[in-house]
Structures are given as structure tokens and as C-alpha cells.
Design a protein around this nucleic acid. Structure first.
Lengths: 341, 341
DNA sequence: TTGTATGCGTTATCAT
DNA sequence: ATGATAACGCATACAA
């Protein structure tokens, strides 16, 4: 039922090609006809048929977004919704569409094939791929425009990331400066570059502060609340003075474990987190955490990818987004006293 | 660069149309040629060009998913990721693609226009629309296949929902049966049908139990953690014995408020929640809550919509998904004692 | 059962 | 500056 170029052409008394030119801002149109056509266009609210456009020109204004969910639990983390929101918002603003793949391993092969060959996807944003995942190699080989959220340590690809190593180092140094010596860590998923990098930052800080490293002060928490809970239960026995926790989701779990053990934060154990999920659930007491502007990162990722698409650039982008160490705001009594907690 | 039907035809020694028939399971193909062609197809991993297919047949196997984010905070709720995951999984399994709109008000008009007229979208799943949102009317008028997640009280549309009224009633009756008389509620966003329905369920239970209704025992919490926190702060002054909280996200906030006020759960105030977000963050103490199988609902929604598309059915679906009242599992000391908490 | 021919709505090339 | 026309890759009506 939707109207076509031909219809618009008839309604405005010009040819199909002229209408096409107006739509695509071709300068070779006289101002008068341009206005005349544009008027009809606006009145109708004309939308070009994307399939036809894509078929002939390859331009579809569709990007793919791939988020692996091998670890389903990871999706309980508000990180992904926020990232998606950022991506979606920028795409809306720039006239692009988002096609979403929450990839499951059993369909991964077919998914890649679809993305690369269905002729609709002009570029791909891919987030949180495990380090050894082959999907990245497939994308590299395909020469499709793509951008990773989270750096890749080996391949020469475009990515957007925060400096996880440095941010984690700063977070731990914050604890150091407050006088804590026995500093533990709950790591994220070490198969993710972010998990590995944050752990590296922790190690760097210990070295810098000349604090002893102990395997006993390291607990892997795989980014889930449950993981944080169990990791903290293990750490409690080691009586750390402070813990650097590689994601706020794990902080929630860690806090639960501490409450159950009747340990106070920060008097008995001080915590520093990572992610700043304070928009979803605040903590009591408030938490010092590394703030990543997640939604903003989604914006930037989309904008960068779209630029790559539109300039057809083959140059690899490296976008590093700033983080900051913040005391998460919380309401109520605990706010004033808590420098770290 | 991708291969076309013509290429496959050449490689398997038949005509383009025969290949097309094989792909589309046309019975009018001899078994021998079918096998021959299929072999080439498999080997190549052929993917038909969606744009061309869509252009000629209208079949693109793409559905749209629309989630309004006027209230950005709402997206901190793991509800949407879970729903998306379910939708995505079923679409993967059925060979469909998901195009995502996290709609912002300022682009909503254009978005609708895009969805309806770009010629790619075969159907739409739309979740959590505010009751007065005009987008639903646009969809109805357009005659595109669509399905709402969350019922619509006025319009005759297809939807999938839980019976929020009954589930909320059951949750409150659970408190009643435990002997609580002074039962308060923290409502969700009352502009959402789910919020309104859960509140209605609360009212129904009070009436059924012949408990007095008091405006003072009702606090609106808009589904956010922060909303739950503030609502509980207000309720505490009214000294309720128990509170029905219309979402688990708000429970987290409510628990934070109770901790700050040094009130124990359930000894001082008992809580019942709604949603069962225990996969994201468990609580301590554990919580009795209404479990919605959110991811499963995503599955069902996608499957229902796809069936509507493929049968081109105009009949309106009404899918009601069961809920159950569960004691959320938690680890640790609090599990055994807590019937309600 | 198979092949040939047409057209979907758009962009791009070529005339004018 | 504008119009006519040829693709794009596929499904399908029609011919054989």
C-alpha cells in the first residue's frame, strides 16, 4: 500500500528520478522543483522502500549489533541495556536502523553467515566477545565494517573501550592512598578482555605500591551478582582490609555476603567497584566506583561505525573513553561520612 | 561479492528458478535435482539477498521490536533484557531477524513511519507502552501484524500478558493468610497497564479479605529502585505490617530504605515482590515474589507473532502466561526460616 | 518437472 | 536541470 517514488512523482508533476534526487539531496535540482517535491514528500510522510534501495545501491542504513549471551547471566547486568540504548539513540538520530543478534552458540555460525551475506547489514557493532571467539575472525575476513566494544588484544580491528587497566589501577591506588595494605580483588570473567585488563590494573597498582601479591586475595567472580557473592565469601576468610571488585553487579553480591557475615562497609572491609550502575540500584552504604559512561559509549560506538560506513574508511579506529572514580551518590544518612566504603 | 541464485544455478547445472524452488521448499522439484542443488547450497552456505527477496515477495523475515524508553530509568530493569533475549532466541530458531527500536519520544513519529513503510518489517512486538501512547493506534490503523506484551484495556489487539490482577491478588492474599492485617503497597507506574492491574489486584485482595483500605498505605514507586526506596521511606511512617511491592526492582530500593531505618524483614515489615529477578541479584533475606517467566514470554511473543505473519491471520490473540508465587532461593543462613520476608 | 520471462521500487547512467 | 532506462537478486506466472 505504501506510496512509491512514482506516486510522488505524479503528485508533484516531475519524474521519478527528480524525486529521487530531492530525497538524496542531489545538488542538481533547481530550487523551485526541490521545494515543490519536498512539500509533497513531507505531506505524505514518504518513506523509501528500504529493500529496493538496498538492492540497487547497497545502502540500507542498517547496522547489526551482536551481543553474545553464551553466559546468559551476564545479561542480567544493566550494562547491555544501557549500551543498546546508546546505540539505538544515535542510530535514530542519524537515520540508521539496528538489527539485533543476541547470539547463542548453536546459531552463531548461521548468524555470521546471515550478517555477512543477507545484503542488508552495512556494518556491525559487536560487544563483549570472549577472547577466543571465532566470530571476530569471521568479521575480519569478511571486510565488513565493524567495531568492537571492548578492545581486542591481538587483532588489528576498530574498537571502542575504556582504559580498563589504568582505571582499575587508579581504583586500587585509591585504596592504597587511604592506607589499606591488604587489598584483595574480585575479578570479572577473565575470558573477557575487560576482566583481564581490570585484573592487570590491580596487579599494576600492587606493584606500584610495593604491596605483596597473594593468590589468596584473588577470587574470580565472572561478573555476576552470584559470582560476587561467592567470591566474597571466599575472600572473607582471608581477612582483606579492602577489595577491588571488577563490576558493580558483583559488588551487590559482595555486599550481600558481607551483610550475612555481619561485616561493616567500610569499617571492616572497604570496597571499590567498577561500572557505576547507580542508575539502576543504589547501594547502602554508597560506593566508590569507576564510572564508565555506558550509554554514551553506545552513542560513540554507533557514531563511529556510521562514519566508517559513510566514508567507507578502512582505517582502524581506536576510541578510548574516559572513566572517573566517583563516590556514587546515595540518599540518606550514609552519604556524608563515606569517603570510601 | 556474495553469490546469487544465478551462481548457484550455474554450479549445480539447473536454472535460477529451480534453485529458488529448492530454497523455498517447493514440492515441484524432483528429488534428485533437489538433492543436487541442496548440496551446493549447503556447501556454499548460501544466504539469499534479503533486500531482493523482500522487494519481490514482501517476505523479509524481519520483525520489529519496539520498547519505549520515555522513562529511561525503566531500562535499568532486567525485565527488558530478558524479554529481548527470549524474543531473539525464538527468532533465531525460526529464521527471523529482529530490528530494534528503543523509541524516544522525539523520534517516535518518524519511527512509526519507518516501521510501517520501509517495506522490511513484517510484524511488530511492542512492549510496555504507556496506556495513552498513540503508537498503538497507529499500528492498529496500519493493519500490520503486531502483538503487545502487556494487554491493552481498550483496544482489540493481540497481546501476551500475565494475569497481573490475579497474581497481585494472590500475592496479597498470601500476606493475609499469614495473618497480616495492615498491608500496604508500593505500586508500579500506574500509566502502565501492568502497574494499574497489580494495584487493582491489591485492592481486590483487600476487599476479599475485608481489610480496610487506606490511601496512606499506598505509595507510587514507578518501577524504579529509587522509586521503591522513596516509597518505602514514606510508608515506614505509616507502620504497615506488610507491603506488596509491584516489582522486584522496587523491592531492592525498599530493602535499602528498611536497612537504613534498621527495620528487619520480615520481623518488622514483611514484603512480597513481583517479577522474580532473582537471576540478576538475589536478596538477603530471600523474598517471596510473583514469578513471571520473562524470557519465556519473549519466546512466546515472538512465536505468536511469527505465526500471525505466516498464516496472515487477522484473528486477535490473547495469550495469558501463568505466574507462580515463589520463595526466591538464596544462599546462606536466611533461607530456612523465611516463609515470608 | 523444469526453464524463461517479468516485475518489485529504487539508484545510477545516459540522454536530452 | 530533468527525464528515460537499465540494472540490483529474487519469486512467480507462464511456457514447455
Amino acid at each position: 500500500m505504501p506510496l512509491t517514488l512514482e506516486d510522488i512523482a505524479r503528485l508533484s508533476g516531475v519524474s521519478r528520478s527528480t524525486v529521487s534526487r530531492v530525497i538524496n539531496h542531489d545538488p542538481n535540482v533547481s530550487e523551485t522543483t526541490r521545494q515543490k517535491v519536498q512539500e509533497v514528500l513531507d505531506q505524505i510522510g514518504f518513506q523509501p522502500n528500504l529493500a529496493a534501495k538496498g538492492l540497487v545501491s547497497g545502502k540500507t542504513n542498517i547496522i547489526g549489533v551482536v551481543i553474545p549471551t553464551n553466559v546468559i547471566k551476564i545479561f542480567s547486568d544493566p550494562y547491555f541495556p544501557l549500551l543498546l540504548q546508546g546505540i539505538s539513540a544515535s542510530c535514530n538520530a542519524l537515520g540508521y536502523f539496528v538489527m539485533l543478534w543476541l547470539s547463542e552458540p548453536e546459531y552463531e555460525h548461521r548468524m555470521i553467515s546471515q550478517i555477512l551475506h543477507n545484503g542488508l547489514i552495512e556494518g556491525v557493532i559487536i560487544a563483549s566477545v570472549p577472547l577466543r571467539d571465532s566470530i571476530v575472525n569471521s568479521l575480519v575476513d569478511s571486510h565488513i565494517h565493524f567495531l568492537m566494544v571492548g578492545r581486542h588484544p591481538l587483532l588489528d580491528v576498530s574498537y571502542l573501550d575504556v582504559d580498563n587497566v589504568q582505571a582499575a589501577r587508579n581504583a586500587v591506588m585509591h585504596l592504597v592512598h587511604l592506607g589499606y595494605k591488604r587489598i584483595a580483588t574480585i575479578t570479572g570473567d577473565l575470558d573477557q578482555i575487560s576482566g583481564a585488563d581490570r585484573f592487570q590494573g590491580y596487579l599494576n597498582a600492587l606493584r606500584e605500591a610495593k604491596l605483596p601479591f597473594s593468590q589468596l586475595l584473588i577470587a574470580e567472580g565472572n561478573y555476576s551478582e552470584e559470582g560476587g557473592y561467592k567470591a566474597m565469601q571466599r575472600l572473607i576468610k582471608q581477612k582483606p582490609e579492602a577489595v577491588f571488585i571488577a563490576s558493580d553487579m558483583m559488588v551487590y553480591g559482595a555486599m550481600r555476603a558481607l551483610r550475612e557475615a555481619d561485616l561493616r562497609i567500610p569499617e571492616d572491609i572497604a570496597l571499590v567497584g567498577f561500572d557505576d550502575l547507580s542508575n539502576s540500584a543504589k547501594t547502602n552504604p554508597p560506593l566508590t566506583t569507576v564510572r564508565q559512561p555506558i550509554s554514551k559509549m553506545g552513542n560513540l560506538a554507533a557514531e563511529a561505525l556510521i562514519e566508517m560506513i559513510e566514508t567507507d574508511s578502512t582505517e582502524k579506529k581506536r576510541i578510548i573513553v574516559d572513566t572517573e572514580l566517583v563516590v556514587r551518590q546515595s540518599c540518606g544518612a550514609y552519604l556524608s561520612g563515606a569517603a570510601v566504603n
